[in-house]
Amino acid sequence: MSLQSLLLPATGAGSAAGKTKAQRNRRLLELGGAAAIVATYLFLVLTQPADIASGPASFAALVALGGFLLGAVLLIAAALPTLPTPTLVLMPVALVLNVVLGQLMGATGLPFYVDAIGTVLIAVLAGPAAGAATGALSTIVWSFFNPTVLPFAAGAALIGFLAGLAARGGLFRRFYLAPVAGFVTGILAGVVSAPIAAFVFGGTAGLGTGAVVSAFRAMGDTLLAAITKQALISDPMDKAIVFAIAALLVYALPRRTTFQFAFVRTFRVLAGMSPATPESQPQTQPESQPESQPETQPEA
């Protein structure tokens, strides 16, 4: 018996039933989380015109807070149990990088709030689930110092998730595709986060963004529409920069470090980073054959 206790149970048929059940539960949580966010968003977009004119959106604020936070919590609950310890240990690192690299970039004087570099980096190394959990959790931790970021947890989770999807889809294999993926992520994340800014805070946190929103309001837009348009101007650019910096950093890391991550190996996330194994196989569809060692294909 003592030998068996030193080993993990084999991944055989015995545990398959339990595994699929756990998987289904996780899928339900994921769907629940996504549904909560989408439903909240739709509800707010559809009902907001009646609300804004009749004073501050106390009701909408509660709905936005409740719906988005519930969604974020469900997504964290779905993702966390699947994450192995090495990924988990990286999550606080991602948060620290979000903050520290954000500050470093702030010192350059560029008018962008690049606060998601760590999240995107982890998503590229460890996948969409890790990215989503990192985004949401790091928002929760950061809210200890700035509580106003807390309602944006769902948006941060979305950024991490999309960055992971982009990495899995091979968008980080070519350097010029990373900012494109960031641009698209920025559009989605900006649109999803706009109701928070509009209904919970009644505006944006910065003077520069505030000025842009003012311009749209002057043209007669509703608050939500104005903030959404402002987000569409600044967020895609911001996320394109974030994705580009994350790509720059990930390629500056040595191969031994990036190859520790099964996600990087399995989905051939990075270009020219395949192991120089002698038995190099012809290029295969990575999803179908996770064990295959992709052939070396240096970037043109």
Binding site: I52, G210, R217, D221
Partner: peptide, 16 residues
Amino acid sequence: PLGLSLLMLHGLFFPE
């Protein structure tokens, strides 16, 4: 920053 932003935004532009 949030307060100033709100003041500028709603103080000057509130179509409703």
